Simulated scan of single mutants.
Amino acid sequence: MNKRADLHTHTRASDGTCDPKENVRLALEAGLAAVAITDHDTVAGIAEAREAAAQTGEEIEVIPGVEVSSVARGQDIHVLGYFVPDEDEAFQKKLYGLRETRHERNQLLIARLQELGIPITLEAVYRRKTGDDKNIGRPHIAEEMIELGVVGSIDEAFAVYLGKEGKAYVNPPRITPQEAITLIKEAGGVAVLAHPGLYDDDELVQELIAYGLDGIEVWHPDNSPEERARYQRWAEEHGLVMTGGSDFHGWRGEEPFHAMLGSHTAGYDAVEELRRLARERAQAGK
């Protein structure tokens, strides 16, 4: 049996639209053996996903993960962490600091949109999430822009305003991807570069491999076939784990964003290799 895993999914804990239990349900429907919960700079959705998996009575593994935000050369670089200590208070405190920087970015971005004559407010955007941990991202801002009639879609919002070439794009100082890798590894997790095809900077990818990445996300909806082949070759050359994931964020209208959960996956051997590295790291830290 060819067991598969979707190693990149988001929930309401960050900028997804689904509860964690829904990600587990969709993973089961897709026939997956495992699903990773990798919300932006938070591990808040993992416990609910674990509980949901336990209640199904089916064999579905929830992998504790996180997608750490960093900046290099003026653009966002995301590093996935797997088998992270999601119940560790010290690790959670570090992630909280990253979310504070995201909040600062949101304030600057909305101020820039207002300068462009768009009647958007921080309060209106933040009302889109409830609870104390308001982990707001650019997709939430895009949703507000759609409701205001400024743009017709999430894609248009990013292309015209919010993406790295957009009119309102801002990027306050954040940790570097090297620091993100170190944060994950020092916590006992395994560090994998997310969607390298989005960065259009293979020199940086090579630098991060040399710095100490454990893996690279080869199978992702934003990696072209040529890029997948190149990243697979680099992973083989450097002994990196090759992962894959849909980057599922739920639905924007009737369409899944980025892609449907289970549509981009890795073999279960990747899960076993990630687990092995995490165990070795934990033993070395004792």
Results as ranks from 00 to 15, higher is better:
E179I: 08
D155P: 00
I209A: 09
Y161A: 04
L7H: 03
E22H: 13
Q283A: 15
G152F: 05
I120V: 12
A124M: 10
G166S: 02
N23R: 10
I46R: 13
T17M: 05
G65A: 09
A47Y: 05
T11F: 00
I63S: 10
L162C: 04
R127H: 00
P172V: 05
S224I: 07
E144Y: 04
L198T: 14
H238W: 05
L32I: 04
V271F: 06
R112T: 00
S69R: 13
E58A: 15
G45I: 10
T243I: 03
F248A: 12
F257W: 14
R50L: 09
R252Y: 11
V24I: 14
E236A: 14
D202H: 13
Q178I: 02
V24R: 14
A266I: 04
A142M: 10
I146G: 00
A90Q: 12
V218L: 05
V71Q: 11
N135W: 02
K93R: 15
A210M: 01
D19R: 14
Y199I: 12
A284K: 15
A5L: 05
D222W: 00
M260P: 11
D200L: 14
G267I: 09
A5S: 02
I60Q: 11
P225G: 00
P225I: 01
P172Y: 02
I216P: 00
G215T: 01
L193R: 09
G16P: 09
G244Y: 03
D39T: 07
P177M: 05
Q75C: 08
M1P: 13
H220C: 09
R275G: 07
I209G: 09
H140F: 05
N171M: 14
T130K: 14
N106F: 01
K21A: 11
R252L: 07
G285I: 08
S153V: 00
A168H: 13
I37S: 05
Q283F: 07
E115R: 15
F257D: 10
E48V: 10
D269E: 15
I141T: 12
V68R: 12
A36R: 09
G152A: 12
I110Q: 03
I154N: 09
H78Q: 10
P172Q: 08
V160W: 00
V79C: 08
Q232M: 09
G45C: 10
G212M: 10
T182P: 00
D41F: 11
V192T: 10
R105M: 06
R25D: 03
Q114M: 13
P119D: 08
L162Y: 02
R73P: 00
E236L: 12
V62A: 11
T42G: 11
D41N: 15
